[in-house]
Structure formats: structure tokens, C-alpha cells
Amino acid sequence: MIPVVEVEKVSFSYDGEPVLEGVSFRLFSGDFCALIGPNGSGKSTLLKILVGLLRPQEGQVRLFGKPLSEFRQWHRVGYVPQKVTALVDRVVPLTVAETVALGLAARQDLSRQERHLRVVRALERVGLAGKENRLLRELSGGQQQRVFLARALAGEPELLLLDEPTTGVDFASQERFYELLGKLNQEGLTILIVTHDIGVVDRHVKQVACLNRRLVFHGDHHQFCRHPEVCGFTGPRHHLVGHCH
């Protein structure tokens, strides 16, 4: 079985300061993995490497079996960047439907009708059907976050990458968002999510990859709670998370 994501001995540094050192892991179809770690541990950097925004100085990344340098099927990958809702200020004139359609901007092969159908379908999947003509800036932070998720889903990807998607969103909206991700995962979507919220690991995901420049842990989320090195940097408060079965 070809891994959806294959990271092999990847290293990266900013101006000589190492951020990632020899990181290797694989994700297979249907996986739902949280990428966690302290600030500056290289989580967002790794995600940016996966979507081709940064090039690793050492090692190799393969998506769907293809080296990143040869990978062209970006419609198979959906990406929700960090703090994306911060872009929505009072001058942005986009409607919800137009925002979601941006996710198809590179798909010149799709007819107008097909594009419309995909936008409607993506909004239905995130529970925002009927809000197509609302202005994006008029929605709540949680709803905006779901619009950006719909934008990533519009291309009907097989792999979804999210970088701290619920930052600045209230707890109830966060819970709804993660439940939605769980549902999408059950539909077959492979998901890798960068998060600081260790509670998410316990409640929603199947796997955890823990970074602190190098990969400290990758495996089942139940085992994660008991891993001694992980407890070392997540702190005593998180060590006490009591949902390990």
C-alpha cells in the first residue's frame, strides 16, 4: 500500500538555526493524525514542506508515492493555513460561495456548472449550506473557519492538512470543528492537523506525531499519553490528561 504522505529523514533550518532534524514518518489512507509539539518545534515548517511552500535542505517527501519535486496533482491535497481568518478584514468583499470557489482557481478543466456543484457540495459538507451569498466578513470566527475548510474541500482532496485551524475560535466552535473533521475522516479523508490543544488528541484523533525538532513520538494516541519523553515537554498539567484507556 502506497503511503499518502511519506517523510524521509527531512531536515530544515532557518538561517542556520535547525528547526527539523531527520524527521521521518508515514501516513496511510484514512489516517487522522495530530502533529503536536511545543512552540518552535517545527510543526508548521513541516506542514509548509508538505504543501511545497518550503523545500527541505535534506531528506525527501513523497505525496501519493511521488517525490514532491515531481508532484503536480495539488487538487488531491487540501490545505487550511494558520490564522487564515485574520485575513478577513472589513474590506474583503468576498461572499461565502466566492471564497470557497477560490479553492478551484487552478482548476481550469472544470466547467462552470461543475464548479458551482463543488462549491455547494463543499458548503454542505461543512454545514454551511444556504449561506452562499452571505459576506464572509459577516460570519462568526467559527463559521469563517468552516468556510476556509470548505475552500480546501472544494477540490475534493484525498489528503487534508490543517495548521492550527481553531486558533482564536471559542470552545464550542472548536468542538464542532473537530467533530466535523472526524466525520470527514470517516468518509475516507486522510487528515494531518497541527494543534496545540492536547485535549484534541485524546478526544478526536487516532494518531499522534509529536515533534520537537526531531520526531519524538508517532503512534496510537492512547500510547501517547504514557510516553515519558512526551510528558517531559507537554508539562505536568498535560501529563494528567486522564482519558487513556
Binding site: G52, Y79, P81, L102, A105
Partner: peptide
């Protein structure tokens, strides 16, 4: 126009869409 708007609004995401 749509691609240009995407780049103006959210360059990082536009790049990951293959634009």
C-alpha cells in the same frame, strides 16, 4: 481574475492550490 484575487487575498493558500 479569480486566480489573481486568490493571490492578492491569501498568497500562501493560492500557492498550495497549484497556482
Amino acid at each position: 481574475g479569480e486566480a489573481l484575487f486568490f493571490v492578492a487575498f491569501d498568497e500562501e493558500s493560492a500557492a498550495t492550490c497549484g497556482l
